[in-house]
Design a protein around this nucleic acid. Structure first.
Lengths: 200, 200
DNA sequence: ACCTGAACACCGTTCAAGT
DNA sequence: ACCTGAACACCGTTCAAGT
């Protein structure tokens, strides 16, 4: 599918965005392993050296991809959060949103996660991660204020809830859980998380 | 550091094992990204084509690495499990063992996890994963039998506990949690998991 | 049975030169 | 300011040939 029918302009217009879009598609369809800058350049119809103008590195492109992912996930979680809801359904809604993202963007999530906060963690990235984590923290903090959650260091509570959520998302993204099983399990997961595994 | 001082024998002896050992060291020191078959061959002192005799693929080597990882983790968990203990300390011990492994083998764990059960999941791999998961399942099943854990589908309970454990391990391996913070948080994590986030 | 050497088709990255 | 083309130093994989 050559983009060359007429006379493709020398300047692409928005090469950076095109590269990111193509990269995300490849990521989704073929995985990180099959992501090559040269191939991307070919798909977008530019020389193999052109990407270098917009991303100093292959890693830089991956970071940009991860950053965009955190942005989307952050917005998604904020949209899914309804502060009016009681704790249990509120948390379940958040969990469902996160799980949905994990299922729909498994490869991207892996990438986002791998970019942890390595040496190259830009402020932007840190901010995007904070935003994502913030949604959960808000739910817990609100609930704690309302007495719906035990007293104690909020960090500890965030850790338990965050770990459980991240764990299922990872299972779902990794294919150890079918998407259906994951989504079906959300309610009981949240229930057990709130009520504990021990009998009351 | 040439291994060639005298006359290195034409046959290496145990090339497969040497390659795996070198690979694990590189993995630990420089990450998966810097793992190349050719470099491995150089380190071990054989031609770049030699690894091909023992691993049909680079992926095959990675799978072997992951398999060995699951084996070690499985044994580690079994060793850490003490059926005499009451539920809470028993689970905490398991969690500590898993976390320790995650901290000491962060890159390997990522690899193990990425090898999920993709198309190429050998029976060996599946068995190794089952073994790892089995330790947790046993704890939950025992506790349920003793009435220390709520009734209900054991799968659901395993999922919550497994997700929480995997979550912290992933946080620790990914560097979002310092090793100290992770280990320090184990007890309260297990406590919250068992007693629930809601007040009783 | 196990390993080598050469060959092939790819990479990422850099840099002068073009538009 | 943005892109190209050639060049460099790497890859993984294959396959005849050597031991």
């Amino acid at each position: 599918m050559p983009h060359l029918s007429k006379s493709r302009p020398y300047h692409h217009g928005d090469l950076r965005a095109s590269l990111l879009a193509a990269a995300e598609q490849t990521l989704r369809e073929k995985g990180v392993g099959s992501l090559s800058l040269r191939e991307l350049a070919r798909e977008v119809g530019v020389s193999h050296a052109a990407p270098g103008r917009h991303f100093k590195d292959k890693q830089a492109l991956l970071n940009a991809l991860a950053l965009a992912g955190y942005d989307r996930l952050g917005r998604l979680l904020e949209a899914a959060d309804d502060a009016e809801l009681p704790l249990e359904p509120r948390l379940a809604a958040l969990a469902r949103a996160y799980l949905g993202f994990a299922v729909d963007n498994a490869e991207l999530l892996e990438l986002m996660y791998a970019r942890k906060h390595e040496p190259g963690a830009s402020e932007q990235m840190v901010a995007a991660v904070e935003r994502t984590v913030g949604s959960l923290a808000r739910v817990i903090a609100d609930a704690q204020r309302r007495g719906e959650v035990v007293a104690g260091d909020p960090e500890d509570l965030n850790l338990v809830a965050g770990a459980a959520l991240h764990g299922v998302a990872a299972f779902a993204a990794g294919g150890m859980l079918t998407p259906e099983a994951a989504l079906a399990g959300v309610d009981t997961l949240v229930h057990h998380l709130l009520h504990g595994l021990k009998p009351r």
